[in-house]
Amino acid sequence: MTTALAVEWLKFRRSAIARVATVAIALVTPTMSVGLVSLARSDLLTGPSKDKFAIALVGTANEAHLALANQVLAVAMVLSAGLVSAWIFGREFVDGTVGSLFGLPVARREIALAKTVIAATWSVALCAVATAATLVASWVAAPETMDSTIIRHAATVFGAGAIMGLLGLPFGWLAIRTRGYMGAFGGLIFVTAFGQLSAAVGWGYWVPYVVPALWAGAGGADAAALVTPWELGFALAFAVAGGVVTVDAFRRVRVS
């Protein structure tokens, strides 16, 4: 497992997709969260434009920063982790290197497990960095209303973003099944659209790709209060199951 982790980590940190996603989420989350709240609360926006930023006008500035961070991370984490998971498995088929992973003393199960562990660890760590950066930016922008309630809210935003990131793991399975990353990219688009739709019609509580964001307040305080630990646990279990199924699919893959 150590060898597989070392090789996969080297491939991962050299990959353009991981580098771009890391920088984008770590910078975009605090910048958008704090920037949009400042914009919405300024005199620069008036009329219908201001209505689009209603979420940025609720509560203190720090609460609004975290509400926006939650909106950003709920989508960005699943998209980035999904893209990364799809790429780390799909590229082996697209580049033709999957054939070279046969006849090795390091089994494909170990290689797949290493890929999954790296993708999962990266997405959770990235979510932590993005949340912490947002918290620091929020404190710099509005130190006067920063308190322990905000810190607790940030922990919830991080938890929801981390689960959303882990929900990217099943897209590795889709990449293996479709022998490339394009099918998984299509799946990501579908899940994002379906998530928006199901949230809009009120089905989101049992949809793994929606409930973490609801829990962190994306649907308002009332919707957040209705989320049960079972529903959150189901989302987390779905992500873990997706990782397990992905590893097993890569172990069983054949090249005909």
Partner: peptide, 25 residues
């Protein structure tokens, strides 16, 4: 074995590829 494409990842250097392959073997 080299039956399909080489065990060579485009984002790694030539030396890194050789070290990775030797470790995987």
């Amino acid at each position: 074995q080299m039956i399909e494409a080489p065990l060579a990842y485009r984002e790694l250097t030539v030396r890194e590829n050789l070290v990775a392959a030797a470790r995987l073997h």
